[in-house]
């Protein structure tokens, strides 16, 4: 079975660094994007199995990216997990309504996050 591919999108370099390590450690292929523009490009280019998506980014926000994925039949199957410091219930609801599989608050636990990803990708 080929390795599953995960795209990690976040504008914070340290978060990106930690996520990249975590995914690789658990046997996934990791692609990283530091902003929305890069993310959109990589999604179409790499067609990952799963996207870990930050919401507040300076150019394009995570909601728009999720919407973009879920609107295209070729991309719709991509699992989206929001990872955000936006902790209002309304933010979470909005994310899940857009078709995300999970909405995880920052700061997050690496252990439960990877457990969640493993389950989703089984």
């Amino acid at each position: 079975m080929p390795e599953k591919k995960i795209l990690v999108v976040d504008d914070d370099p340290y978060i990106l660094m930690s996520l990249e390590f975590l995914m690789q450690k658990n046997g996934y292929t990791v692609v990283v994007a530091r902003n929305g523009t890069e993310a959109l490009q990589l999604i179409q280019q790499e067609i990952p199995d799963l996207v870990v998506l930050d919401i507040m980014m300076p150019d394009i926000d995570g909601y728009a990216i999720c919407e973009f994925i879920k609107k295209q039949s070729a991309l719709r199957h991509i699992i989206v997990i929001f990872l955000s410091a936006k902790t209002r219930e309304s933010d979470q609801r909005k994310g899940l309504e857009l078709g995300a599989a999970a909405y995880v608050y920052k700061p997050f636990s690496t252990r439960s996050l990877i457990k969640e990803i493993n389950q989703l990708l089984q």
């Binding site: 914070d12 340290y14 978060i15 660094m17 930690s18 996520l19 975590l22 410091a85 902790t87 920052k106 700061p107 997050f108 636990s109 690496t110």
Partner: peptide
């Protein structure tokens, strides 16, 4: 939350 997230994850 943003720096805290990094600190915790790392």
């Amino acid at each position: 939350r943003t720096p805290l997230t990094s600190i915790r994850a790392l």
